[in-house]
Simulated assay, not measured.
Amino acid sequence: MRYVAYIGNLAKLAVELANGDDPSDLRREFFAQHRVAEPDGAALAELLPALRDAVEAVADAGPIDPVNRLLAEFPPSIHVSTHDEAGGPHLHFARNGEDAASWLGRSCGAALAHVISGDPDVTVGRCQADGCARFYVDDSRNRSRRFCSNTCASRTTVAAYRARRKTTAAARPRPGRTDPSA
């Protein structure tokens, strides 16, 4: 496993949780690989405010305090794991089999710390579409993504096009009208 892929996937997991998305295949795979049970609602509800604050800080490029608070509440338990025999030994931030909230807090907190510290291959952003407060992990080649989904990108493009048409139409003289100042 490439370390950057691990950081990126944990950042995606943090974003998924912060956005309140349903569990993804990535989340199910992480939990299965690391023998972590799906968290109950109460445990997840305790973790989410700190995790959302940390994701927001990373997406907005600071301040770092929310990430540090998440790390203080869920200090990483860094160790070398070999569960992925094909990929060889690699770092983990939490122990296999931990309760879900602790595992998520430790793993996502450590990954977000890497990202806010400038990991060049992982970028977390906030959707630029009007009315959308979702976050995303930008894994595009040139790190130029601005929207959480194609839906938000399309909605923004259509709105800009309609605004330009409206401005252009308002600036054109209308046939059959005379200038009252003449």
Results as ranks from 00 to 15, higher is better:
residue 40 D to S: 08
residue 58 V to E: 01
residue 77 S to R: 15
residue 19 N to G: 09
residue 89 P to C: 05
residue 73 E to L: 14
residue 18 A to N: 06
residue 90 H to L: 14
residue 137 V to W: 03
residue 161 Y to F: 11
residue 89 P to T: 11
residue 121 D to T: 05
residue 111 A to S: 05
residue 67 V to A: 01
residue 164 R to I: 13
residue 52 R to H: 03
residue 150 N to T: 13
residue 132 C to G: 04
residue 66 P to L: 00
residue 52 R to K: 15
residue 109 G to S: 04
residue 137 V to L: 05
residue 16 E to G: 11
residue 182 A to N: 08
residue 44 L to K: 07
residue 84 D to L: 14
residue 29 E to Q: 15
residue 42 A to Y: 10
residue 95 R to V: 12
residue 83 H to E: 13
residue 170 A to I: 00
residue 56 E to K: 13
residue 168 T to E: 15
residue 87 G to F: 04
residue 108 C to K: 07
residue 14 A to N: 04
residue 38 E to W: 13
residue 56 E to G: 15
residue 22 D to R: 14
residue 28 R to N: 14
residue 62 G to A: 10
residue 131 G to A: 11
residue 103 W to H: 11
residue 18 A to D: 05
residue 35 R to L: 14
residue 109 G to F: 03
residue 181 S to G: 14
residue 101 A to D: 07
residue 66 P to W: 01
residue 162 R to F: 02
residue 46 E to P: 00
residue 31 F to V: 00
residue 115 V to Y: 06
residue 128 Q to T: 15
residue 47 L to Q: 01
residue 180 P to I: 10
residue 108 C to A: 15
residue 102 S to M: 13
residue 181 S to P: 01
residue 48 L to S: 05
residue 108 C to P: 08
residue 177 R to H: 12
residue 108 C to M: 13
residue 28 R to L: 10
residue 164 R to N: 14
residue 68 N to K: 09
residue 172 R to V: 10
residue 141 R to N: 05
residue 135 F to T: 00
residue 91 L to W: 13
residue 135 F to E: 02
residue 150 N to F: 09
residue 182 A to V: 10
residue 52 R to I: 10
residue 79 H to F: 06
residue 150 N to I: 07
residue 99 D to T: 08
residue 1 M to N: 08
residue 70 L to P: 00
residue 145 R to Y: 03
residue 60 D to Y: 01
residue 12 K to N: 08
residue 31 F to R: 04
residue 62 G to V: 06
residue 57 A to M: 13
residue 127 C to G: 01
residue 172 R to D: 10
residue 92 H to C: 08
residue 133 A to D: 13
residue 160 A to K: 09
residue 105 G to I: 00
residue 140 S to Q: 06
residue 98 E to P: 08
residue 105 G to Y: 01
residue 123 T to K: 11
residue 85 E to P: 09
residue 7 I to D: 02
residue 110 A to E: 01
residue 32 A to N: 06
residue 142 N to H: 04
residue 179 D to L: 04
residue 138 D to C: 04
residue 10 L to D: 02
residue 163 A to T: 14
residue 94 A to H: 10
residue 120 P to I: 02
residue 152 C to F: 07
residue 143 R to Y: 03
residue 99 D to H: 11
residue 46 E to S: 07
